[in-house]
């Protein structure tokens, strides 16, 4: 554990809590892609199956359980409790275009051809692209509420901090997880355009982010 990894995990947690609280307090999930949230729940579900097979640390177990619980709670709020506010007409990203290549790649490129390893690899690749339905939705509607952009900012920050964590671990421990690093870098690149808009429009304009 190093400071970048810890800060990354905290950013990830903050992002998820921001989204959950936003939906809970406003009793609305308008502008939120339910598809992205289902994909994230799938990411956690397939990655954390090792909760049943290996013990890493108390921190590891607690965080995994929290991420799983919060992601399912978010999906529940969107599709059950506040489904009347769900903007399904603008949440039209074709998820199968992500799932098919990701499933294919996870069978081709993995550390071991075992069910758990393939599912772990699947979760890593899927996480890299799971935000695309949300970004697609923002592009389609041309705007995002500021709280939604704060959520995306912390999610992107988490990815950037994980890269710093990998640089640190490579130098300090000789640790290098090629699958995680490559897809983590790809994932972070998706946020760069958003980061630019966030700084130039949301922070300076202090309001909704609208696209030109």
């Amino acid at each position: 554990m190093n400071i970048f990894r810890l800060a990354g995990d905290v950013s990830h947690l903050v992002a998820i809590i921001i989204l959950l609280l936003k939906i809970w307090r406003s009793k609305s999930c308008a502008g939120i892609s339910g598809k992205s949230q289902v994909l994230f729940a799938l990411v956690f579900s397939t990655r954390y199956l090792d909760l049943f097979t290996v013990f890493v640390s108390v921190y590891n177990v607690v965080m995994k359980v929290v991420f799983l619980a919060l992601s399912y709670a978010t999906v529940y709020l969107i599709y059950m409790r506040f489904r009347n506010s769900y903007d399904s007409e603008n949440d039209t990203f074709r998820v199968e275009f992500l799932l098919v290549p990701v499933i294919g790649l996870s069978f081709l490129e993995n550390y071991a051809f075992t069910p758990l390893e393939i599912l772990w690899t699947f979760s890593i690749f899927l996480e890299a692209v799971a935000i695309m339905p949300q970004l697609f939705m923002i592009t389609k509607t041309g705007e995002a509420e500021s709280i939604t952009t704060h959520y995306l900012f912390f999610l992107g920050l988490y990815r950037a901090l994980y890269i710093a964590n990998w640089v640190w671990r490579y130098h300090m421990e000789g640790f290098f997880d090629q699958i995680a690093v490559v897809s983590g870098v790809v994932q972070t690149i998706f946020y760069c355009d958003f980061f630019y808009l966030y700084v130039t429009r949301v922070l300076r304009g202090k309001g909704k982010m609208s696209l030109p």
Binding site: K64, Y111, T114, D177
Partner: peptide
Amino acid sequence: AEGEALHDEL
């Protein structure tokens, strides 16, 4: 498990 990597990150 044998043949599987230990994934200690979240």
